[in-house]
Design a protein around this nucleic acid. Structure first.
Length: 561
RNA sequence: CGGGGAUUGGCGCAACUGGCUAGCGCGCAGCGUUUGGGACGCUGAGGUUGCAGGUUCGAAUCCUGUAUCCCCGACCA
């Protein structure tokens, strides 16, 4: 490709809105352009990289036995409703209506479509496992896109789906995808941490995310030196016993002229934070009021809570709702004597003796509150959010670390989450109809590309890993030379970006080459010829060397193999 | 969804409390001189200041509405 003909240019300036390095560099180097919030055009250079990433993914994913196909972008809403997935995705789901009034959703993921497709072939156990995948545009109406390509509303995803006779069979494919994803990350020069994760809107129980540590990440992963790794949404920790052997004292009311915060309670009663009961009131998408209670030094993890009560969405109750619906008082909420609310307790409260907290009446607190004796709960479980330095649940010795990360890909064990509501059956060996066990596997191409830039750049520009660079060689021609070399490299099937501009200074060409980040830079000039050949420099190196033109092709090909 | 900021040639920005023909840099086009780390000179093209309404002799500037973009927050009562 001749640079002079390339559509899309580098620019010296870029909007100050682009604060994330990958966003800024991709804009500046002419790989992407923004259309609207969370929607980006991939320019020719950017698309080249996408194609290479796709190619790696194809090669590795097909090793799991997956076969590529493609389904439509518009999914009949009815199918989503069958599996109740329209509610799970909620506002993030884009909807369109055709001229006949038929409702569709713009595909956000394709479990229901793929299952519907598989059902059309009435599979028997002999056909299973079925392992299919596609690359396609996905639409998610994210509340707040951010970080350039890191969080967008429209993106290409490789999404794979597998269908099995049972979980044991799924696990074989699951492991193959696990290995494939590790290989993909390796070829893209990404350092991934695999974490246990929440299944979220996809459904099912077990899943893993492939995360790349980055300060610009929106996810937080919890890790331990013993090997434990989980997404914060899922991570657990050891809840140390505080005072379970203490004798239960009598419950009593005391005057409490204090503010509404936990700290106010600590200051007034002169007791530890952990002995206070923290009360948080939520309302879910079906209008239920939920009182989440937890030990005072812990925080409520909304994802865990949502899963425990099987809600799709949660929001905080307003002060008015707390007063009018629960007949309580913000800042003085208590599980003792409260009505018309689902009480969900963190299991940390079971062994907490003689706790203190509000009374549902302003400026009156209760002391010596005891679980089971003074209040009843509807659900008890783990709703606590893991924090740094909490004790690892696996080795029970080391302190946990929290790190920001970006999700590169994920694999889901989704079980019967779709087969159940959609009658996704297969014919078993004994002739009976049984539900298929499903898995699903995703990688976002644009995000993968962005993480690569995020982890491979310097102050001058991008430094592409060799397998996904838009071109293999960036040839800079000075002094009117280069045409013959360009032709020769092309004839050797080397992918060349040839900076053939005649009216641009050498410095500008070097700066552009650094910005674009192709791994090998060649310079042909009078000076290089006087030195005996062609200047060869790796983007990742400071030093260059002169290579005899006879050896150039082998030097390049050996770098790439 | 709540709060804050922004919107002016392709890009980055300026034009103070209303006042002359809306400027500057980059980029772009032409000519010439340059050519190893973002060269220089001259000439030139390109804007109904996001949109709609209002106030005024006069609006990029003030007011109202609206759209879009960015940032922060969306939890501990």
């Amino acid at each position: 490709m001749r640079y002079s003909q390339l559509f899309g240019k580098t620019s010296k300036t870029v909007s100050k809105d682009a604060t994330v390095a990958s966003h800024r560099l991709l804009l500046q180097a002419g790989f992407i352009r923004q259309l609207s919030a969370g929607r980006y055009t991939f320019l020719p250079l950017g698309l080249k990289v996408c194609r290479k990433i796709e190619s790696i993914i194809r090669q590795e994913v097909e090793k799991t036995g997956a076969q590529e196909l493609i389904v439509p972008t518009l999914h009949p809403l009815e199918l989503w409703q069958q599996a109740n997935r329209d509610k799970k995705f909620g506002a993030a789901m884009m909807r369109v209506t055709d001229r006949n009034g038929a409702e569709f959703t713009l595909g956000a993921t394709a479990e229901v479509i793929m299952l519907d497709l598989v059902k059309q072939f009435a599979p028997s156990y002999k056909d299973l496992p079925i392992n299919i995948y596609q690359f396609s545009q996905k639409f998610r109406d994210e509340a707040r896109p951010s970080g350039g390509l890191l969080r967008v509303r429209e993106f290409v995803m490789k999404d794979g789906y597998s269908f099995h006779v049972d979980e044991a069979d799924l696990k074989i494919t699951y492991q193959k995808y696990w290995d494939a994803y590790l290989e993909i990350a390796k070829r893209m020069d990404l350092n991934v941490t695999i974490v246990e994760s929440d299944n979220g809107a996809i459904g099912g129980s077990v899943s893993h995310e492939f995360m790349v540590e980055s300060t610009v990440g929106e996810d937080t992963i919890v890790t331990c030196s013993c090997g434990y790794a989980a997404n914060l949404e899922k991570a657990t920790f050891v809840k140390e016993d505080k005072n379970s052997s203490e004798a239960e004292a009598d419950l009593s009311e005391v005057k409490a002229p204090r503010g509404n915060t936990m700290e106010d309670g600590v200051a007034l009663h002169q007791k530890p934070l952990w002995q206070q009961i923290k009360d948080v009131v939520f309302v879910d998408d079906s209008g239920r009021f939920i009182l989440a209670i937890i030990r005072g030094d812990f925080m409520v993890n909304e994802t865990k809570l949502k899963n425990l009560i099987q809600a799709n969405e949660l929001r905080h109750a307003t002060d008015e709702e707390i007063r009018n619906k629960l007949h309580s008082e913000p800042g003085f909420i208590s599980p003792v004597g409260i009505k018309d609310v689902l009480i969900v307790a963190d299991d940390s409260l079971k062994n907490l003796k003689n706790a203190y907290g509000g009374s549902n009446k302003k400026n009156i607190d209760l002391i010596n509150i005891n679980f089971g004796r003074d209040y009843q709960t509807d659900i008890v479980g783990d709703i606590a959010e893991t924090q740094v330095d909490y004790l690892c649940p696996q080795c029970k010795k080391e302190k946990l670390k929290l790190v920001k990360a970006v999700e590169f890909g994920n694999i889901f064990n989704i079980g019967f989450a779709y087969s159940d509501p959609m009658d996704g059956n297969f014919i078993a060996q004994d002739g009976t109809s049984q539900k298929m066990y499903m898995g699903s596997y995703g990688i976002g191409i644009g995000r993968a590309l962005a993480i690569d830039v995020e982890t491979h750049h310097d102050e001058k520009g991008i430094i592409w890993p060799k397998e996904i660079a838009p071109y293999q060689v960036h040839l800079i021609a000075l002094d009117g030379l280069g045409e013959d070399l360009y032709q020769e490299l092309l004839s050797q099937n080397i992918e060349v970006l040839f900076d053939d501009r005649s009216s641009v200074s050498a410095g500008a060409k070097f700066a552009d080459a650094d910005l674009i980040g192709i791994p090998i830079r060649l310079v042909i000039s009078k000076r290089s010829q006087e030195s005996g050949g062609i200047e060869f420099k790796l983007r990742s190196d400071k030093e260059s060397k002169i290579i005899d033109s006879k050896n150039l092709v082998s030097e390049i090909t050996s770098f790439y193999t």
